[in-house]
């Protein structure tokens, strides 16, 4: 039963700029730069995801077991989540569970790729947990886009190479200390001329 459920909507620092950019319909590069900065600040502020490497390793191990062991009487090896009461740890275990259900063979292939895949998924989920989901429901009816379009916009932002770099940064520094948003070069005139009109908005 929903019983005094809590619906966090207060925006951590730097996410207000993201909200404004979404509302104003800023270009994809501009929006991406703001989101990456907000995510990096969030990862630093919350102390990273201390268990990220342990989670990745466990996902890889369980995926390998699932791929290489015949199921016995319906028994299936599951993750054994270790919690530390931090919200980002809950987020990370949840993403690990989803990946294990949907991409078992990919995760079983090699540990390095698994770590990257899980970390990217976790960083994207952190963007929703601490940012987008506190912004988007309030923007519908106000922003130039519909719910579908806003989600597509966020998906585009979270598919940028900067997110991969943040994920790698998190893997290197699980406590979040010193994680920075990747630098963006100012686009050349040729690049600007070749951009789609939508991205220039």
């Amino acid at each position: 039963m929903p019983d005094d459920d809590r619906l966090p909507k207060s925006l951590p620092r730097k996410w207000k700029a993201v909200a404004c950019a979404l509302e104003e319909g800023d270009s994809l590069p501009a929006l991406s730069a703001l989101v990456e900065k907000a995510l990096a600040a969030t990862i630093r502020d919350i102390g990273g995801v201390p268990l990220i490497n342990e989670i990745c390793d466990q996902v890889h191990r369980v995926a390998r077991m699932r791929c290489h062991t015949l199921p016995l009487d319906g028994y299936r090896l599951e993750l054994s989540p270790r919690h530390d009461r931090l919200p980002q740890t809950d987020v990370a275990w949840n993403r690990a569970r989803v990946l294990l259900e949907t991409r078992t063979e990919d995760l079983a292939a090699n540990l390095k790729d698994t770590r990257h895949r899980v970390a990217v998924s976790v960083v994207r989920a952190l963007a929703y947990h601490f940012g987008f989901s506190r912004i988007l429901p309030a923007l519908i009816d106000r922003a130039p886009w519909t719910a579908d379009e806003l989600r597509d916009r966020c998906a585009q932002v979270l598919s940028q190479p900067g997110i991969d770099k943040l994920a790698d940064g998190l893997l290197r520094r699980p406590d979040g200390h010193g994680v920075r948003a990747p630098r963006h070069k100012r686009p050349s005139v040729e690049a600007v001329l070749s951009m789609s009109l939508e991205d220039l908005r």
């Binding site: 459920d5 809590r6 619906l7 966090p8 909507k9 919200p87 809950d90 987020v91 989920a125 929703y128 947990h129 601490f130 987008f132 989901s133 506190r134 429901p137």
Partner: peptide, 8 residues
Amino acid sequence: LESQRGSQ
């Protein structure tokens, strides 16, 4: 919302 964790 995605911002809710666990028992929220």
